[in-house]
C-alpha cells in the first residue's frame, strides 16, 4: 500500500467508516509489523470498532479507544495514548473517526500535530445513504467535515453499499458519483470498497483498478 503512515478515515454518519477502517487495518497488517487502530467514535453508542478488540489483538493489531474501557458507555472520552499513535514514526496507524462534522471535531484537537506528520485522510462515500446519494449531498458533508477537522482530505473511498444486499449496480452507481465528486474537488479516488461476494462479479475496469474487497467484520452472522 502506497498510503502514508497515518491514515484517517472520515465521512458522513453511517457510510461504513468503521468497517472500512477495520478492513484497512487488517490489510495493513499483511505488510507491516507495527499496526494500530484508534477508535475515536464519540457519536455512536453501538457498532464501534472497539467491540472487535479481541479480534484485533489476536492478529497483532493494537487497539486504542476511549480511556473508559467499556463498550456500553457513550461518553466522549479519548485515549491519552492517541498523541503517541499520531507521532510514532515506527507504527502504521488508522484513525477511525466518528461520522459527520460532530464526529470529526475530535480531530481538530490534534490537527496541529497531525499537520507535522505524513498523513492521508480518506473520505468514505456511500451513495446509498439518503443524504449522500447526490454530488451536492456528498460535497456538503465533505466540505463541512474537512473544515471541522482542520485537515486536508487526500483521497475518496467509494464505499457505496447496502450491506449484504449490495449489488454490482450499487457499486457502479457509487463509482460514477465518486468520480463526479473527484472531478469537482480534484481529490483522487483512492479505493473502491465492496463486499467480497459482489467484488467477484465486478467487470468495470475503473473500479477493478482500485478494488478493495472487504469482509463484514462488524456484522453478526444473523444481521443482513
Amino acid at each position: 500500500m502506497l498510503d502514508k503512515r497515518l491514515v484517517i478515515i472520515i465521512g458522513h454518519y453511517g457510510s461504513g467508516k468503521s468497517e472500512f477502517a477495520v478492513n484497512y487495518a487488517v490489510k495493513m497488517k499483511e505488510n507491516h509489523d507495527f499496526v494500530s487502530i484508534a477508535d475515536l467514535d464519540i457519536v455512536n453508542p453501538y457498532f464501534r470498532s472497539r467491540e472487535k478488540r479481541e479480534f484485533f489483538e489476536e492478529i497483532g493489531i493494537k487497539v486504542y479507544d476511549s480511556s473508559i474501557r467499556n463498550v456500553a458507555v457513550d461518553l466522549p472520552a479519548l485515549p491519552a495514548e492517541l498523541m503517541g499513535v499520531i507521532l510514532n514514526p515506527n507504527s502504521r496507524s488508522v484513525l477511525d473517526v466518528g461520522g459527520d462534522p460532530v464526529g470529526a471535531r475530535v480531530l481538530a484537537r490534534y490537527s496541529e500535530q497531525i499537520k507535522n506528520v505524513e498523513y492521508d485522510m480518506f473520505f468514505v462515500i456511500n451513495g446509498r445513504r439518503p443524504e449522500t446519494s447526490t454530488v451536492e449531498g456528498v460535497l456538503k458533508y465533505l466540505k463541512l467535515i474537512e473544515a471541522t477537522s482542520k485537515l486536508k482530505i487526500s483521497g475518496l473511498i467509494n464505499n457505496t453499499h447496502l450491506l449484504k444486499d449490495t449489488t454490482v449496480e450499487d457499486v457502479e452507481f457509487g463509482h460514477e458519483l465518486t468520480k463526479k465528486v473527484s472531478w469537482e474537488t480534484d481529490i483522487p479516488i483512492r479505493y473502491e470498497a465492496c463486499i467480497k461476494d459482489t467484488a467477484l462479479q465486478i467487470t468495470n475496469k475503473e473500479i477493478l483498478e482500485k478494488l478493495f474487497p472487504i469482509n463484514l467484520y462488524m456484522r453478526e452472522e444473523w444481521m443482513s
Binding site: P45, Y46, F47, L162, L163, D165, M223, S224
Partner: peptide, 10 residues
C-alpha cells in the same frame, strides 16, 4: 430494541 434502532439496513 436498541439493536434495531442502531443497526443499519437496506
Amino acid at each position: 430494541d436498541g439493536m434495531i434502532g442502531q443497526m443499519m439496513e437496506a
